[in-house]
């Protein structure tokens, strides 16, 4: 009963809070209910970013105002971005999740905007890329896979969860380039989600899986899937501890999928500083670090000028790769 009452009570409070905001008229930011928008369906990376950080921020009391998480899926984030830029450009109370996926979409011009059209707020953590095979695969190590791939480049198939030109495809392109295989010979099969790609791998329908370490951590632990390499700059912990980094294998490939938030183009200085400070505090909390550990994520805080420089560099790098792949003219 207690929960049910609480359930009603929270609802009641929220509606009262909605009806009677601004009791202290000139209160400091934030003075209203806040909104995190996940530009994708529930369950994915963007959704998790929103929900988990909203949870930590509210539970630790770093943000007192209730944060509502809203899903606005479509076009790999374009639908939500268009809405923010066109209709809510002055809204100070909304943050939207974004990640390297958005950079690749901007690089191949599937997203008509650039990072200059929005206010990047913070990058919070990264999920490193990985290549994995099924447990009974003939490829015991990345070396075996590379050798076989070199010999018959048109036979090995790779399942990922981004569209061509997206992050997973670009990861394959980077690998192929480092190995010396022409980009045209990559057999990349796009699936709807990491889960679908993983199903195809485990059913034996494709040779290997390309995606994020976090997506397969549980499967690697159970032994159903064998990670061959991590496409990152530093060693991961847990099950990935013994998995070699691509650069240790002589392949200069690192493709972190960082995740964070952006805000409306018209966000003023004060709220922006508030969020930069708050996220700075959040990543130091025990609660947040527990989240990182559980999700196999790695801390990656970037804000302000640093974040913008990082974005500019990343997008132009992906642009170059997309051109080599023949995805943009």
């Amino acid at each position: 009963m207690k929960v049910f009452i609480r359930f009603l009570f929270v609802g009641l409070l929220m509606s009262i809070g909605l009806l009677l905001p601004g009791s202290g008229a000139e209160a400091a930011y934030p003075d209203k209910a806040l909104e995190f928008i996940a530009p994708a369906n529930p369950g994915g990376g963007w959704d998790m970013t929103c929900r988990l950080s909203a949870k930590v921020l509210n539970e630790t009391g770093l943000v007192k105002n209730p944060i509502a998480v809203i899903n606005k899926p479509g076009g790999f984030g374009v639908v939500a971005m268009t809405d923010i830029i066109r209709n809510r450009s002055k809204d100070q109370n909304v943050l939207v999740a974004f990640s390297a996926v958005l950079s690749t979409q901007m690089a191949i011009q599937k997203n008509p905007y650039t990072y200059k059209d929005i206010t990047p707020v913070a990058a919070l953590f990264v999920d490193y890329g990985t290549i994995a095979v099924r447990k009974d695969s003939p490829y015991a190590t990345m070396k075996d896979l590379i050798e076989s791939w070199k010999k018959n480049p048109g036979v090995l198939t790779f399942a990922g969860s981004s569209p061509p030109g997206g992050l997973d495809h670009i990861r394959m392109a980077m690998l192929a380039k480092a190995i010396g295989i022409p980009a045209k010979n990559i057999l990349y099969v796009a699936f709807q989600s990491g889960g679908d790609a993983l199903s195809a791998l485990m059913g034996g329908h494709v040779t290997a899986f390309v995606g994020e370490a976090g997506e397969i951590a549980g499967f690697a632990e159970s032994g159903a899937v064998r990670p061959l390499t991590v496409l990152g700059d530093r060693k991961l912990t847990g099950i990935f501890e013994k998995i070699p980094l691509a650069k240790d294998l002589g392949l200069d490939v690192s493709s972190p999928n960082w995740r964070g938030f952006y805000a409306a183009p018209g966000m003023s200085k004060e709220p922006l500083r508030y969020w930069e400070d708050t996220f700075g505090k959040m990543v130091k909390t025990k609660e947040w670090n527990d989240v990182l550990k559980k999700q196999a994520w790695v801390d990656f805080l970037l804000t302000g000028e640093k974040l913008r420089n990082f974005l500019a560099k990343e997008i132009s790098m992906y642009q170059g790769l997309a051109k080599e792949l023949g995805l943009v003219k």
Binding site: L8, V10, G11, L12, M14, S15, L18, A68
Partner: peptide
């Protein structure tokens, strides 16, 4: 919508 399902509607 607001009390039972906690869905906010525009006012």
């Amino acid at each position: 919508f607001t009390l039972v399902l906690d869905i906010r509607l525009p006012l």
